[in-house]
Amino acid sequence: MSDTLAPAERPQNGGVGGHPGASRPPKAASLWSDAWYDLRRRPLFVGSAVLIGVLVAMAVFPSLFTSVNPFDAATCDLAQARQGMSAAHRFGTDNLGCDVYSRVVYGARNSLVIGLSTTVVTALLGGLLGLLAGFRGGALDTLLSRITEIFFAIPSILGALLILAIFRTGNVWTVMLALAVLAWPLTYRIMRAAVITAKGQDYVLAARALGASAPRIMFRHILPNAVASVIVVATINLGTFIAAEAGLSFLGVGLRSPDISWGLMISDARERFLEAPWPLLFPALFLSLTVLAFIMLGDAVRDALDPKLR
């Protein structure tokens, strides 16, 4: 059906004259410069970037947002436990009478560090190995793919318990490591599949015919065409990691008090949720906002990297 109209693409062909290219950067354009130019004009990107900026500021300089230091035990008052919202305690107080607002602010650091670092490590490790395996194929691919299958066979909670048990301490970095070790195979698989698809395209053949080196083909031709799905999965994973940290804390192998994280707060507040919802709702709200912001960011970046969607 040669002329069945594919509405999304057909009318763009031949529409060269009508492209709003007049306001484009005048000098040589590249995918990245065009993507950046495009991103700055996307409300979705600007909105999510501002939100992420605020959250990062909260993580780096919590004292800018609250004068209460939740690490100081004197700020908690058991007599004031499980109070609702008030002028003194904007988000109410928790089971131990501590101020929820300041704990949410201070918890941002651990949660963001775990979420971000796990995402970055997972994306880099899984992405690079997936790129290599998909591009090289052969024995390397077989070996790596069998290894990931072993990881898929391990129930993740059990695996994390095991890894954290080996380290004996539950701090931000061991939690990150435990999560990343279990999560990279998924990214690896997605990247590998995308690379294999891209590798078979004619433009890769054309680049080879020109004499392009393997790194050039991998990073200039295949990676930009394969990275979109990894970006999407990475941003979705980010939220999962922050939440998974809570799960580990609940099992007693993750972060522990007096450390503060949204995950810990949610897990501490669960038992008395019905009588005092605030200590759970606010960290959960911030967790959701963070996840939402990163998913929006990922969507915007993915779209900006696809010239057809600009």
């Binding site: 590249s30 392009a212 050039r216 031709h221």
Partner: peptide, 21 residues
Amino acid sequence: YTSLNPRMTVGDIVGEPFEIH
């Protein structure tokens, strides 16, 4: 449709031979 990298500009595609050689 498949022989040109969709994420490269025409200038980059036609100029790539000079980058390689």
